[in-house]
């Protein structure tokens, strides 16, 4: 019997050896859990701090904070309307220019590029995302803006001057190259790598049987893309576009360099304007009192707009896993 009881006595000795490891186990588990919770706390913290920091401005201005176009630091009157319109219009231009480019690039990478060529081109496109925002600003201000003024703004302004509607939208009062349209075009290049790489991955995930059978019945590459791949990728392409939109809405430094930073609202996209982010970056360090609250309140609006856009984007992109 001793032979049997001897091993039985081992469990008595075991807890002693196990205890230190057991403590580490619990600490490690809780540290991981705490770190994961911190991600939630961060987002909640950003939301709460924006609301509290901006509250005095919301209270003081009421609904006028959103609808008013007056931004007068002397009399403490703040209206966010021009910045909101500027943010939305630059982001919209960025999508109009950037989405076709991104889709074209994704189609090139997945359907047209020879295999040895695909990887280097993919990397190059993704490196566009690694270039810091401020460098896009430098390129925009010192390279793009002068060219844009000379070859687009001035000729277009000469042609459309006096025309109804078109003249209002495209006429530049002072063709300096700075403005909403320039900012939108720079933003377009900044969001291309994000949209293009997601769409590329989605097109790659589509079972090749589908493509092959379409080719098998004699479809051309364009018809395969248009009638097979795009309907298959479906809503997740919209998700990728929304993700790009989220980027474009909050982009700061590049826009601050090229948007012109004008506080008034202009009907022309060739004229200088401002976005929420550019105004915060411009005025923050000199702001005191209610102006500071008004800037944080602008941040609060930006937070909620981008939050909604990004939530929709992530839900739509997540659907791709259904493949």
């Amino acid at each position: 019997m001793t032979a049997v009881t001897d091993p039985m006595s081992i469990p008595a000795a075991r807890p002693q050896r196990k205890t230190p490891k057991g403590t580490f186990d619990i600490v490690f588990r809780n540290a991981s859990f705490g770190s994961a919770l911190l991600v939630l706390v961060l987002l909640a913290g950003i939301m709460i701090s924006m609301i509290i920091g901006g509250w005095p401005a919301f209270r003081e201005m009421g609904l006028g904070f959103i609808t008013s176009s007056v931004w007068d630091t002397q009399n403490d009157q703040y209206g966010a309307w021009p910045a909101i319109v500027g943010t939305l219009s630059t982001a919209l231009i960025a999508l109009l220019v950037g989405v076709p480019l991104s889709l074209g690039i994704a189609v090139f990478l997945t359907q047209l590029a020879p295999p040895w060529f695909k990887q280097p081109v993919s990397t190059t496109i993704e490196l566009l995302a690694a270039v810091p925002s401020i460098i896009y600003g430098m390129w925009g201000l010192f390279v793009f803006v002068p060219l844009f003024a000379a070859y687009v703004q001035q000729p277009v302004s000469r042609v459309v001057e006096g025309m109804p509607i078109v003249g209002t939208i495209f006429y530049a009062a002072s063709p300096s190259g700075l403005g909403i349209l320039s900012a939108g075009i720079i933003l377009a290049f900044m969001i291309i790598p994000f949209i293009a790489s997601i769409v590329r991955d989605m097109l790659d995930q589509i079972p090749s049987v589908l493509r092959e059978s379409a080719y098998g019945i004699g479809a051309t590459t364009w018809e395969v893309v248009r009638h097979v791949l795009v309907p298959q990728a479906g809503v997740s392409i919209i998700g990728a576009i929304m993700l790009g939109l989220g980027r474009a809405l909050g982009e700061t430094m590049a826009v601050t360099f090229v948007v012109g930073n004008a506080n008034r609202l202009s009907a022309s996209i060739m004229d200088p304007g401002s976005t929420i982010a550019s105004r915060i970056a411009n005025e923050f360090n000199e702001a005191i009192g209610l102006q500071l609250n008004a800037l944080i309140a602008l941040g609060c609006i930006l937070f909620f707009v981008t939050f909604v856009v990004l939530v929709i984007a992530r839900i739509l992109v997540a659907r791709v896993k259904a493949f």
Partner: peptide, 23 residues
């Protein structure tokens, strides 16, 4: 948490600057 993390991943960096300024 994974969903919120993905949102933070693309959140505008200017908001994170403002957040740290406030706290």
């Amino acid at each position: 948490i994974r969903f919120i993390n993905d949102i933070l991943l693309s959140a505008p960096s200017i908001l994170i600057g403002l957040f740290v300024y406030v706290i």
